[in-house]
Amino acid sequence: MTTVDAREWAGALSEAASKGYVYLDLLTAVDDGDRIDVIARVLDPSTMDAVMLTTSVASEDPLLPSIVASHPAAAWHERETAEMFGVTFAGHPDPRPLILRSVHERPPLRRSTPLVERLATPWPAAVDPAVERRPRRQQLPPGVRTEWVDQP
């Protein structure tokens, strides 16, 4: 996996395309907390060799150039990554949401975005302290992050 600077993202992909890696296999993102990693895997269809490129953008204002010029298949992947992770792909020819219909206040796949249903649904394993006298360590249900509970 090759890590490139965000400013060189489009250039690195374009260079890969000029070397034969013209087929976009995957473009997605991983939320690492204060930064978002964007990952692209591109293939050379004549040899089926693949290279993986990754870059990081700040979670606060994730902005990255679109790679649709060198890899047209990235158009849908970038639209999905934009709506799910809140990454803006500058220069995307058609930046409409791809999958989501309703407006989500925060990008659903960000770790900081609460899973509202899990937060709002009583966890059946939560022990009512009024009934249960044995001391138990405070447990959060699986899939619920501490930071969600502290959020307004």
């Binding site: 966890w123 059946p124 394993a125 022990v127 447990q139 249900p141």
Partner: peptide
């Protein structure tokens, strides 16, 4: 003992 309730990924058990 509630272990099944705690471990259920879909929260489908209650007792």
């Amino acid at each position: 003992c509630l272990i099944c309730v705690q471990e259920c990924p879909t929260w489908c058990i209650s007792l």
